[in-house]
Amino acid sequence: MKKAENIIVGISIGDLNGIGSEVVLKTFEDSRMLELCTPVIFANVKVISFIKKTLELSAALHGIDNLEQLVLGKINVLNVWRESIDLNFGTNDDIVGKYAIKSFVAATKALKDNQVDVLVTAPINKYNIQSEEFKFPGHTDYLNKELEGNALMLMIHNNLRIGLLTDHIPVNDVAKNLNEKLIVQKIETIKSTLTKDFGINKPKIAVLALNPHAGDNGVIGKEDDEILKPVIKKLFDKGNLVFGPFAADGFFGNSQHEKYDAILATYHDQGLIPFKTLSFGNGVNYTAGLNKIRTSPDHGTAYEIAGKGIADFNSFKEAVYTAIDIYNSRNQFEEISKNPLKTKEKQL
């Protein structure tokens, strides 16, 4: 297993007019972070130095032109581009959006090629990243295409884990997207990630209902009775600890979420509103179900405070911690899977 500082954390810089660079630099100003891992920021060292100077930050940067030049224990900045960029903090700029994607695509390739161990992505603007070359709603959809597996958005804060059955689609499309194949796939992904990435052998999973009061026996919609319940029962009968569908309002109001290892919400805001309320700005977005590890903070570009030096970096720092923890947990799981008898002997 790798020593801590040898874990290479690839960082895509996100929207340079937002708070991404600030939270990245603030995270690694603390030298203790460099004992946990070695960061590589995919950007341009002159641009990052300019932002550092503007925000009066103290992080020492090490510019490199290829990953063979990486230095352990330093904040490495890989020059993905050479040209200068005009930045205007707090503004939506299509040109800046193109550089956000250059950074992200380069960092993803490094992750695929095992040149970095994990990927942590700073926030992008979903509007200014669109182009003929990049036609994805965001990070997750691109990663699902590039990496093996079935991506699932899993929000994490301590023991609270909320996955999304559907994510970035309009609310009026949610019901028509619910089907047995999708539900089974997402629940299997959550079960697998809880086992491999979080070390939970027999995970308990709760599923939230689509309709208020879980449909009230069909009075307020039939999807819960006709789609969700039969699939949950089928999975439970096969030995999976899957329960629901639960009415979402009472579920969190009565602290039922504390009884489960993960919760599957049927749509974006149903999961994200309680999550962000309960995580107090320290939440992490983890893309579960892929053969590589990617995390991100649970916030956006925050244009309204960009360039002011007041951004809270805790969510990004937690994203780094989470990526490292999952990396170690996954390696331990693979080691145990390969040598179950040897591991048992060690325990004895």
Rank of each mutant, 00 (worst) to 15 (best):
L34C: 13
I64P: 00
P39V: 07
L178E: 06
A107P: 02
A59S: 13
V116Y: 00
C37V: 07
M1P: 12
A100Q: 14
K112W: 05
R32E: 15
A323P: 09
K234R: 12
P123M: 07
T91K: 15
F134R: 02
D141S: 13
G300S: 14
D94E: 11
N88G: 04
A311P: 05
G18T: 04
G289W: 07
F198I: 03
D30Q: 08
K196D: 10
Q185A: 14
V116S: 02
V320N: 01
V45S: 12
A100S: 15
N254S: 07
S58D: 09
C37P: 09
G18P: 05
I324Y: 01
Q256F: 08
V45L: 04
V242F: 11
N92R: 15
I162L: 11
E180K: 15
E35W: 10
M155Q: 13
K46I: 03
L164Q: 10
N179A: 14
L208P: 01
V9H: 04
K342R: 14
S315Y: 06
G138C: 08
D249C: 09
T91R: 10
P340V: 05
K126L: 09
L341A: 15
P212Q: 03
S103M: 08
I324L: 12
F243N: 08
I183C: 00
K292C: 04
I41A: 02
V184R: 14
S255F: 11
A106N: 09
F252W: 08
K202E: 15
G309C: 11
L61C: 11
D117Y: 01
H268Q: 09
